[in-house]
């Protein structure tokens, strides 16, 4: 096989993967319907929070539980307070409901977090607006 044939084959494969798989991924990767936080800003910009929220939660939980090193701004209850979703009766929606902020995405990616077997998934009413020192 000559170098020209190889080059053509490589270009053809590249076009196939970029066009075919790219289109397929973009249509399968539609964002679920998620209710935006009512207060803000969050700890990190939204794309970083989507990718890193689990790592942040794990780090903060270990520090808080094992060392007593508490950071209320990065606690799960703070997440729950800002990202509360309310129903028609203005009551916060629990994780049992598919409209819950965490559940909306986790349902789509088929990941079941076990946070809410022990932690409360709704804020205690009435919710007071919170302003944090984070970005965005």
């Amino acid at each position: 096989m000559g170098p020209l044939t190889t080059a053509v084959a490589v270009v053809a494969m590249a076009v196939f993967f970029i066009s075919g798989f790219g289109e397929g991924r973009s249509s399968d990767n539609a964002q679920p319907a998620v209710t935006s936080a009512t207060t803000g800003p969050c700890l990190l910009p939204a794309p970083d929070m989507r990718r890193r929220h689990k790592d942040l939660l794990f780090e903060e939980r270990t520090k808080a539980v094992r060392q007593g090193d508490r950071n209320p701004e990065a606690s799960l209850s703070r997440c729950i307070t800002c990202h509360a979703v309310f129903d028609e009766a203005a009551q916060p929606i629990a994780y049992d409901d598919e409209r819950h902020f965490c559940r909306a995405c986790h349902l789509q990616v088929a990941v079941a977090p076990d946070c809410f077997t022990c932690h409360r998934s709704t804020p205690v009413m009435p919710v007071t607006p919170i302003q944090t020192g984070g970005t965005q």
Partner: peptide, 16 residues
């Protein structure tokens, strides 16, 4: 038992 409406500062759950 399954615990509901836990206090935010005191997580408690079934099986622990």
């Amino acid at each position: 038992d399954t615990v509901r409406d836990q206090r935010p500062h005191s997580p408690r759950g079934k099986g622990t």
